[in-house]
């Protein structure tokens, strides 16, 4: 496998990992398991409701910056950075 293919594989692995988190906080905590999580309180919030209206959005933001940071590392590691 050449360098570009290895880089692409590492990229795919990273994207899949990030998308699992993306799916888990929104579709998982915010929709599929919302009623179960609502039994838990976070201050005045029911936890499932909090994920649906606040938590998932915060996670999305962190996720994109994490992805960008890791990708920049991969760019350097595989030596495919832009000039």
């Amino acid at each position: 496998m050449n360098n570009a293919q290895k880089y692409w594989q590492a990229n795919i692995r990273l994207v899949i990992g990030c998308l699992i988190v993306w799916f888990f906080v929104s579709f998982g905590c915010g929709i599929l398991f919302v009623n179960q999580l609502n039994a838990i309180r976070l201050g005045g919030y029911q936890l499932g409701f909090w994920f649906a209206q606040q938590g998932s959005i915060y996670t999305f933001v962190v996720l994109i910056f994490f992805y960008a940071w890791r990708m920049n590392q991969l760019d350097r590691k595989f030596n495919v950075e832009e000039a």
Partner: peptide, 16 residues
């Protein structure tokens, strides 16, 4: 909430 998550979560797909 579908609108909140839908209109923000799309940016993860866009970025990645």
């Amino acid at each position: 909430s579908a609108y909140l998550m839908g209109w923000t979560g799309g940016y993860c797909l866009l970025a990645m």
